[in-house]
Design a protein around this nucleic acid. Sequence first.
DNA 1: TCTGGGGTCCTAGGACCC
DNA 2: TCTGGGGTCCTAGGACCC
Length: 387
Amino acid sequence: MAPSPRRIAHLDMDAFYASVELLRYPELRGLPVVVGGRQVLAGTSHREGSREFPRLREYAGRGVVTTSTYEARALGVFSAMGLMKAAQLAPEAILLPADFEAYRHYSRLFKAAVATFAPRIEDRGIDEIYVDLSDVPGETRDLGRRIKQAVREATGLSCSIGITPNKLLSKIASDLEKPDGLTLLAVEDLPARIWPLPVRKINGIGPKATEKLGELGITAIGQLAHAPLGFLQAHFGGRTGTWLHEAAHGIDERPVVTHSEPKSVSRETTFERDLHPRHDREELSALFTSLCVRLAEDLRRNGYVGRTIGIKLRYADFRTVTRDLTLPEPSSDAAVIRRAAGECLRRLSLDQKLRLLGVRASGLSVPDPGSPADPPRQAELPFALPT
DNA sequence: TCTGGGGTCCTAGGACCC
DNA sequence: TCTGGGGTCCTAGGACCC
């Protein structure tokens, strides 16, 4: 007898950041609203009663759209789009700065609400989770309705849920009836509901793979399903070819992972304007040190030390390079991190303008209590870039 | 109108060791 | 003094995701 299929839910909050902002500013409901950018705009009046909100057209800078309301999406404004481009499409849209504290608060609320009756939860970021419902009693659609209701009662927000035998299909399903959707799918529904969709809908197929598949004449998931395994393996390699084939057939045995340890921690910043390593040396050096200090704080706050320290540079032409260095002993000390990052920096030619600088710690571990890997809190910092 | 910040996983070459 | 082979670590880059 075949084992009964799992019941895996994927829950995705609808336009999450923007929806949280609408809780705060209900008068913006129904308007195109965009969350993004880095700071509140200067000159924006905040009068009580008749509040003036900044418009997208007033924005100047390097920010991107983090979330847009469905009204803004109707104007062509989507996540990850540059705000300057978004302003061309929707100059009158309201632009609000991101308030991650608020989003984290609502994130905790909705996850806690789901956990009260479906505790096997995999965190997929601030606004998404997978939930293993296999052992939760109740009829599937009813469970879905109860989860949505619990989320709404806890947060005042709507979400979309897909429930299928695995994570891959549930992720696709949760998107099918957004917003406020509840979509149940069984393997028999694959040809009718999944195969007509573009391959890009498969989580893990991005712009590059979509492009390459397109060149091979494959645009729909059904076409991918009918491509011979050997053909896919020949073009994408053994592993990826097999994965593409299985994904198109709705096969995915990955478990819901309820706990995982972080692998790396990083801090990076894109400058307001491109900076030259020599001409803007002092400003860059201060930024670099500040990134190291914040990274060290992040490590300490979360109780980790890192053994590999790396840097990331993005040149003005958007070319990105990384360098890293593995230390003899792991550390969370800002001065140690700064020194290692400085060593990495010395391995790069610094004759072009930069737009981004980042620092990363990987090879994380939890330090032994009292070990020398956990040095005193404050240490002296070298404040100059290596020459 | 140029493209944020925080992550994960995979690949691949060279060093190094047995 | 012809070119073995496997395992692991380190490093760099890239695709992808939220």
